[in-house]
Design a protein around this nucleic acid. Structure first.
Ligand SMILES: [Mn+2]
Ligand SMILES: [Mn+2]
Ligand SMILES: [Zn+2]
Ligand SMILES: [Zn+2]
Lengths: 143, 143
DNA sequence: ATTGTAATTGAGACTCATTCTCAATTATAA
DNA sequence: TTATAATTGAGAATGAGTCTCAATTACAAT
């Protein structure tokens, strides 16, 4: 996503383009998988660019409201995000022990949801399925 | 759920029956809908019984591990629980137009989720499925 | 019933993600 | 260039949840 599109997005919200916001946008879109605000913040610092923690949190909220990224989960270790654009749909398993997040996709699951919607006259446009429990590693540790 | 069943549950975990734990159990089961730890804590205090915040958090964890209650969501205002015991599990459809929430249940959907977990070696203990879209009424209005 | 002891409790200190404050800075339109 | 409203950042504040540890209590063994 380039500067102009981003500027336009902000304009529509009555907000200004700033280098801090742009740096945060670029970093957020650089992740193929999941990321959290603190990691993003530290990586921005490491690369010499600068943006405060406050700006990171503020900008991630903006990006979420614009649909550029989405919240994947709120774990005991913080909020996890992922980019929305260019990412095919999938659902999540969340380990309540270590906070690990696994992704999965099931065509069957999607189809059944469509049928359920049809039956109830509901026009579904998106969904979130989060399965919570213990991942393989943490199951072993428990024993 | 009565004292004896609860005592047995705790026994199996090598834990003792205490009045604090029982008070917390009873309060947790008294909610038909959602509740959060702080509310539960304050209501226990108000009714003259006593149990500390620490015990509330500790006991809610125990109850969740026993499957008596489950985490519904982690929100910006904290963790939301609902009773499982004596309540049938269900999922939700949320109308983004009017905010209406429809409940549904699909045995098929549950089974498939179990299979997916098994395949990945994940021990699922609960899940949240929220389908967002337009309800029957709002679909008509749109036309 | 008494006793030994390991489990439990509670007050409050602590953690840590996130939000808030506000003076200094900056983007933007006039 | 200037006026000014938006934005920023350092650090303080908030708040949910966890941890500590001395005092208490459940309960099994006697
Ligand atoms: Mn994902
Ligand atoms: Mn439910
Ligand atoms: Zn795990
Ligand atoms: Zn509706």
């Amino acid at each position: 996503m380039d500067k102009d599109i981003f500027t336009k997005l902000l304009r529509e919200r009555g907000q200004r383009f700033t280098k801090e916001r742009f740096v945060i946008l670029q970093k957020a879109l650089s992740y193929d998988g999941h990321f959290d605000p603190e990691t993003l913040y530290l990586q921005i610092r490491k690369t010499g660019s600068k943006a405060s923690r406050a700006s990171v949190y503020r900008t991630l909220s903006v990006l979420r409201e614009c649909g550029v990224i989405q919240q994947v989960a709120k774990t005991e270790h913080g909020t996890v995000y992922e980019r929305t654009y260019g990412h095919r749909h999938h659902d999540h398993m969340l380990c309540v022990q270590c906070g690990d997040i696994l992704e999965f996709y099931s065509e069957e699951l999607e189809k059944i949801q469509e049928n359920i919607c049809k039956k109830q006259g509901f026009q579904g446009s998106s969904h979130t399925l989060e399965i919570r429990g213990y991942c393989k590693k943490c199951r072993k540790k428990k024993k």
